[in-house]
Simulated scan of single mutants.
Amino acid sequence: MSRSVPVGLGARAYDVVIGPGLLAEAGRRIAPLARRKRLAVVSDETVWGLHGAALTASLEGAGLAVHPVIVPPGEQTKSFEGLADVTDRLLALELDRGDIVTAFGGGVVGDLTGFAAAIYKRGIDFVQIPTTLLAQVDSSVGGKTAIDTPRGKNLVGAFHQPRLVLADLDVLSTLSDREMRAGYSEVIKYGLLGDFGFFEWLETNSAAVLAREPAALARAVARSVEMKAEIVAEDEKEQGRRALLNLGHTFGHALEAETGYGAALLHGEAVAAGQALAFRFSAAQGLCAGQDAARATAAIAGAGLPTRLDEIAGHPFDAARLVRHMAQDKKAEAGQLTFILARALGDAFVAKDVDAEAVRRFLVSEGAQMHEGEGR
Rank of each mutant, 00 (worst) to 15 (best):
R3P: 00
Y14P: 11
R28K: 08
I30G: 01
L33T: 08
L39W: 11
L50G: 03
H51A: 14
Q76H: 12
Q76W: 08
K78E: 11
E81L: 15
R89Y: 01
L90R: 10
L95R: 01
R97S: 06
A103F: 07
D111L: 02
L112A: 05
G114H: 06
A116T: 09
Y120Q: 08
Y120T: 10
Y120P: 04
R122V: 04
Q128R: 12
G152S: 10
L155W: 04
A158F: 07
F159W: 04
L166Q: 03
L169H: 06
V171L: 04
L172I: 13
S176V: 09
D177H: 05
R178F: 04
E179N: 11
V187L: 13
V187D: 05
G191L: 05
L193S: 12
F199G: 14
T204A: 14
N205C: 03
A207D: 10
L217Y: 11
V221T: 12
I231V: 15
R241Q: 14
A243S: 12
A257F: 00
A257P: 02
A264R: 15
L265Y: 05
L266H: 07
A270D: 11
V271P: 03
A273G: 02
F279E: 09
S282P: 01
L287T: 09
A296I: 04
G302P: 07
G304N: 07
L309D: 06
H315A: 13
D318A: 09
D318F: 02
L322K: 10
V323D: 08
K330C: 02
K331I: 08
K331R: 11
G335Y: 01
G335Q: 02
I340A: 06
I340Q: 05
L345K: 09
G346R: 10
D347Q: 13
A351R: 05
D353M: 01
V354Q: 07
A356Q: 02
V359Q: 02
R360A: 04
R361E: 13
L363M: 10
V364R: 07
Q369Y: 05
H371W: 02
H371T: 14
H371V: 14
